[in-house]
Design a protein around this nucleic acid. Sequence first.
DNA 1: AATCCAACTTTGATGATTCAAAGTCTCGGC
DNA 2: GCCGAGACTTTGAATCATCAAAGTTGGATT
Lengths: 221, 221
Amino acid sequence: MPSITVENYVKQIYLAGQQQQPTGGQVSMGRLAAAVGVVPGTVTTMVKALVADGLVDYEPRGGVTLTRDGERLALHVLRRHRLVELLLVRVLGLDWSEVHAEAEVLEHAVSDKVLERIDALLGSPTVDPHGDPIPSAKGKVDGTRRHSLAECTVGRPLRVARVTDQDPAFLQFIDRCGLVPGAAVTVEGRDASADAVLVRPDGRRAVTLGGAAAEKVLVEG
Amino acid sequence: MPSITVENYVKQIYLAGQQQQPTGGQVSMGRLAAAVGVVPGTVTTMVKALVADGLVDYEPRGGVTLTRDGERLALHVLRRHRLVELLLVRVLGLDWSEVHAEAEVLEHAVSDKVLERIDALLGSPTVDPHGDPIPSAKGKVDGTRRHSLAECTVGRPLRVARVTDQDPAFLQFIDRCGLVPGAAVTVEGRDASADAVLVRPDGRRAVTLGGAAAEKVLVEG
DNA sequence: AATCCAACTTTGATGATTCAAAGTCTCGGC
DNA sequence: GCCGAGACTTTGAATCATCAAAGTTGGATT
């Protein structure tokens, strides 16, 4: 069985590879070190172990990419993480802003049997409380690319699909604004010079978001 | 924070101390090694670390006893273990015979916040699916000593209170007999020479249990 | 082409946990 | 009082994951 450490490295490689589409999925050692929270030297060491386990391909001074096995493991960890988050919100009543940290630990402690019970109890959901897609048991993920509030059409009724930041303070702010996944919104205006976006959640006070915040709120519709 | 290893040692010291009332709660190194599943030498090493952490008192070639802090930690781990077991049975629908192994891992991954949500969801239960008492958040446990089927009164209507073995095969057997916690039973007879106890679960076929099995089923009433 | 810098790798060391095997103690029997 | 057996401790070594700090490298800058 992969250790908790290995699961975390593989998960972070996957997530980092998702964010930066530019490079061919190759994740730099520095980026990975930051994501995992260790010094770069540690990553060099660990990556060699991951190569030996057949989970990643590694090009010295280039970066790492997941092998098929590595990606399968990453998606399995992510499935556990996201189903656990949803369980914590829907069944145990935790706030969506706090479940990420809890799931970060629980994702390494949930067996396949328990995982599939959670999935069944929740009705095989496709997204977690943040709108992040839940990989299927077979390792398929919804790879839909969505526009953020920073780049979507102005004036058209949209729906918040996903919030791509796990910081509890940010999520609570999003909550207060009424920009949670599922909420109807319209972008009323955008000011490039001011790096600002004026957003109106349906039936709520309009909010001005800076570009960085707007980019974290993905919409559909 | 105590490591998973430390939590396990402390838990096992507590459990071993419960079983053998004889010694003044002092658990031998060999017993602890067997309980934790390591060689004796490892226990000697680890116990020294536990002493340094103020969790146990250790008398070389005598044994270990938990300090107040050690007992508090042990009860906290046990609370997590038992509440998780009950959650797995009542909410996720797992079989009581399989939840022990799952809880063995999850008990180290559940935060206090999640734990108290589980407790609330289940209505602050006092026993887990095996009838083992759940320590309170403040570290109090029901210390009631119960008689087993091997020693209780013959011919009197009783109720199964607890099954003190976590082996799935044994628990499934108990299940098939109808001797699960809560079930009404009567001991119809006992044959000391044959080391056998004849037990009749209410409205079921009578079963003959050997002494070792009978000792694992505790009753009340 | 010479140099510099940031990113990366290497090296040496540490802490936690474990085992195997060798050494030591203690208690019961003689 | 001596001796052996079993229980316990010690010793030496291994594994995993990590860090600090020193050494490389490759491409960008001049």
